[in-house]
């Protein structure tokens, strides 16, 4: 029951994100647009490249979807509405998101095409840049909550959300989250207009539909993670808990979609350089500052 409600909420969120993404990139809002393009994708024939790696080609899009769903499973929508309340929830989000990269590497390697492979390997470079910026801010969040359980992380923010308590971590995690779901300006693996679709280049028909759906679910999941770790999840006055969760998640998703729209795409060398020379020192500083604040203020 809980799982069914969560998946429906996730799919609804994914649809809204698709509408938002269409609005942001095309400039006009179309409520039925994603539905039409989804149906069109399903209706088309799904071509397969000739000398592909069969197993990887079939497995990659579902694996992307599964990793996003697994990460969403440990994030609470409201106090009782959580699929799996793991004792190591905050770490599990991270573990599930690591498989996004595995899926994209598979999708890049499998079709035996140059554009796809360049896209897949670019994402691996991007991962080396952003992965520490996911772990380290979560560490600071867990330090304040004194727990890795996601529901306890939310409850620890009753007085003050983490976005204000540790703004450096919030910004770093938001940027790293944008890099996980390869949103602009971190859209190196797909790189529209440059790589002919990158890892998506050889996918058509229903396989592409699964791929796109997985990416939308991933955006919602990462937005939900930001809302749980930094914006206090379901906490808020007047409205019921689930409404707060949904509103915060959608607001973060909209912010992530809008933020990079007018920034040029970052080269992977620059992402690596800034991730390691600026991001990781800032993340360490964040952990240090949070530690001092916990000792001094409590």
């Amino acid at each position: 029951m809980t799982a069914a409600i969560s998946i429906l909420a996730l799919l609804a969120g994914a649809y809204l994100v698709a509408v938002l993404e269409g609005w942001v990139s095309m400039g006009r809002m179309s409520i039925t647009g994603p539905l039409a393009s989804g149906a069109a994708m399903l209706g088309r024939e799904s071509f397969v490249p000739k000398r592909r790696d069969r197993v990887f080609f079939e497995v990659a899009p579902p694996l992307l979807l599964v990793s996003a769903l697994l990460a969403a499973a440990v994030l609470p929508l409201s106090p009782g509405l959580i699929v799996a309340d793991l004792a190591t929830g905050a770490l599990f989000v991270n573990a599930a998101l690591a498989y996004v990269m595995v899926a994209l590497l598979m999708a890049g390697w499998a079709p035996n095409g140059a554009y796809a492979m360049v896209g897949g390997f670019r994402f691996l470079g991007q991962l080396v840049a952003y992965s520490m910026l996911i772990v380290m801010p979560i560490t600071a969040v867990a330090m304040r909550a004194e727990s890795l359980v996601t529901t306890e992380v939310v409850e620890s923010q009753a007085a003050l959300p983490n976005a204000i308590y540790q703004p450096i971590g919030f910004v770093l995690f938001l940027l790293a989250g944008m890099a996980v779901c390869f949103l602009p300006p971190f859209d190196l693996p797909t790189a529209p207009g440059e790589l002919a679709g990158g890892v998506e280049a050889e996918y058509t028909g229903w396989r592409l539909a699964v791929f796109r759906l997985a990416r939308l679910v991933l955006v919602v999941t990462v937005a939900a993670a930001v809302s749980v770790f930094y914006l206090g999840g379901w906490l808020g006055p007047v409205f019921p808990p689930w409404a707060w969760s949904a509103a915060k998640t959608l607001a973060v998703a909209a912010l992530m979609l809008l933020a990079g729209r007018h920034v040029p795409r970052l080269r992977e060398t620059h992402v690596l350089e800034w991730g390691w020379k600026v991001g990781i020192p800032l993340a360490l500083l964040n952990i240090f500052v949070v530690g001092v604040m916990i000792l001094v203020v409590g």
Partner: peptide, 9 residues
């Protein structure tokens, strides 16, 4: 969970 996370990378 740590094993699953570390090995992916």
């Amino acid at each position: 969970v740590l094993q699953i996370m570390m090995m992916a990378t």
